[in-house]
Computed example of a mutant assay.
Amino acid sequence: MEAGVVEIPGYLAATWAIDPAHSYVGFVVRHLMIAKVRGHFTGVEGTITTAAEPLGSSVTAAIDLASVSTGNAQRDAHLRSADFLEVEKFPTMSYRSTAIRLDGHGHVMDGELTLKDVTRPVSLKLEVNGFGPDPFAAEPFRGGRAGFTATGEINRMDFGVSYNGPIPGGGMALGEKVDIVLEIEAARTGA
């Protein structure tokens, strides 16, 4: 094996549809300077193309911002409002990869995230979890599930998500950094 090449056991070049029922699109943000609040989006769709040469692979995804869930209905409604995501005006967040590259012993996916009509470059650390059979799929797609993990961070201010409030004693109610955690399972749709 060449130096710097990452082996991906069972790798399969194909086109895949993100399975929202078996995927997690999550985020973590600092709250009141002392804790972290976690949330996720249940509405996700997209296409992953694993190329014959893995570094030629690509991803496109769209997230339904109204599907945000933090486990608190009042907070979720506030996140959907004009203070944060403005889902009535901007219902979708999207991501489009621009390159996949080696980074040490792993991969990084470079891409463009669009939120509230603002597009910024966002790189995600990418982990290929594996490829396996789909026992529920019709032939010829029995070899048809793939799993990926991606993590990264954005500054919400870069996307115009700037609502905040001071807290007594100093500091702000919300951190600007948002950690992104993606656990994606996808089903094969074609060769």
Results as ranks from 00 to 15, higher is better:
Glu88Ile: 05
Leu115Trp: 06
Gly143Arg: 14
Phe136Asn: 14
Trp16Lys: 03
His31Glu: 00
Val5Gly: 11
Asn72Phe: 12
Ala35Asp: 13
Val178Cys: 06
Ile63Met: 10
Asp19His: 05
Val6Lys: 11
Ser57Ala: 09
Thr92Gly: 02
Glu53Leu: 06
Arg145His: 03
Leu182Cys: 06
Ala14Ile: 01
Gly152Phe: 04
Gly130Ile: 00
Ser58Gln: 03
Thr119Lys: 05
Ala52Asp: 15
Val59Gln: 10
Glu53Lys: 13
Ala173Glu: 01
Ile154Thr: 03
Val5Ser: 15
Leu102Glu: 09
Gly170Glu: 04
Tyr163Ile: 06
Arg188Gln: 15
Lys89Arg: 15
Leu113Gly: 04
Arg188Gly: 04
Ser58Lys: 02
Val161Asp: 07
Gly171Gln: 07
Pro9Leu: 06
Gly170Pro: 11
Arg75Gly: 13
Thr98Asn: 05
Leu102Tyr: 00
Ile180Met: 07
Asn129Trp: 00
Thr47His: 04
Lys116Ala: 12
Thr151Arg: 15
Val68Pro: 05
His105Gln: 14
Ile63Pro: 08
Leu32Gly: 01
His40Asn: 11
Asp134Lys: 11
Thr189Phe: 00
Ile63Ser: 11
His22Met: 01
Thr114Ala: 07
Leu12Lys: 15
Ala187Gly: 12
Val28Lys: 11
Arg80Ala: 12
Leu55Trp: 03
Leu113His: 04
